[in-house]
Write a protein that binds this DNA or RNA. Structure first.
Length: 268
DNA sequence: AAGCAAAGCAACCGCAGTAGA
DNA sequence: TTCTACTGCGGTTGCTTTGCT
């Protein structure tokens, strides 16, 4: 007869995670791997909903996460992907190793949207505003808000990918901005067949960032973690508690050294 | 230094699809 | 086959930080 509810809601803590909670969650997952999230809070000794644990882990604690602002090229990639995929942040995030959908979504809403508006580009349709205005005059059907304009976006095929021959108008850089370095970068990306194949291949990330979780008893040292440049931020976070508090003794000397170096560099 | 507003971001909410009982 | 939990996703909220007056 059904299953137990995900969490009883009563006595479940909400709001920002404390360092102590993070520590418990990381410790638990590093020891036991990702089992069913519903059981995690109980087993880890957390007064949190399983959903909240999963979110915290995937958006913040995962060791393969990059922290910090998106680079220019990442940002440009997001713009291009958004033009093709729309607000499907998880799909977009899948093409940017080490980035979460939440992070990209936030970055889009706070930075990229404004940037595009400044450039005179509608962040929803990726069309220059002047072009839209012209279309509005010629077509009464265009008389609606872009926010609701899902038809104006190219609908992807079953793989979520738009045919490139239909894509020229929506994703090619608008005329009034084509002289920027960013659009040139985008051009080069779009013109690179192998790269585009990689980009638009079925569920194929730019870099295989699929993060295999160690099964119980296994640790991270032999599972091909992403580069230390990419993942060090996570460890720096861990430094808040002391890395060995997690029982992560699997890091080799080089890794710990690089961590120390980064830590030194981070001091300001 | 204090107060206010804007920006940034972590976390929550609710819905939809999927899978198990 | 139906019901319900699980999971993932996108939208939204609200707290914290930063910048300005």
């Amino acid at each position: 007869m059904g299953r137990q509810p995900c969490c009883d809601k009563l006595g479940v803590k909400k709001g920002p995670w404390t360092a102590e909670e993070d520590k418990k969650l990381i410790n638990f997952i590093l020891t036991n791997g990702q089992c069913c999230w519903r059981a995690v809070p109980k087993l880890a000794g957390l007064r949190r909903c399983g959903k909240s644990c999963r979110l915290r882990w995937t958006n913040y604690l995962r060791p393969d996460l990059k922290r910090g602002l998106l680079t220019e090229s990442e940002e440009q990639l997001v713009i291009d992907l958004h033009a093709r995929l729309g607000n499907r942040w998880s799909k977009i995030a899948a093409r940017l190793p080490g980035r979460t959908d939440n992070e990209i979504k936030n970055h889009w809403n706070t930075h990229i949207k404004k940037k595009l508006l400044k450039m005179g580009i509608d962040p929803v349709t990726h069309e220059p505003f002047h072009k839209q205005a012209a279309a509005k005059e010629t077509s009464p059907r265009a008389d609606h808000f872009p926010e609701n304009d899902t038809h104006n976006l190219q609908l992807p095929d079953s793989d979520g990918i738009i045919n490139s021959d239909q894509d020229n108008s929506s994703s090619s850089p608008p005329e009034n901005s084509s002289s920027t370095d960013e659009s040139r970068l985008l051009d080069s990306v779009c013109n690179d067949d192998s790269l585009m194949n990689c980009l638009w291949g079925d569920e194929m990330p730019l870099v295989d960032a699929s993060w295999k979780f160690p099964s119980a008893g296994e640790n991270f040292s032999n599972m091909g973690l992403p580069s230390w440049d990419d993942s060090c931020a996570w460890l720096l976070d861990c430094q808040d508690f002391g890395i060995h508090d997690f029982g992560i003794d699997c890091f080799n000397d080089i890794e710990v050294n690089s961590l120390n170096t980064l830590e030194m560099g981070d001091k300001h």
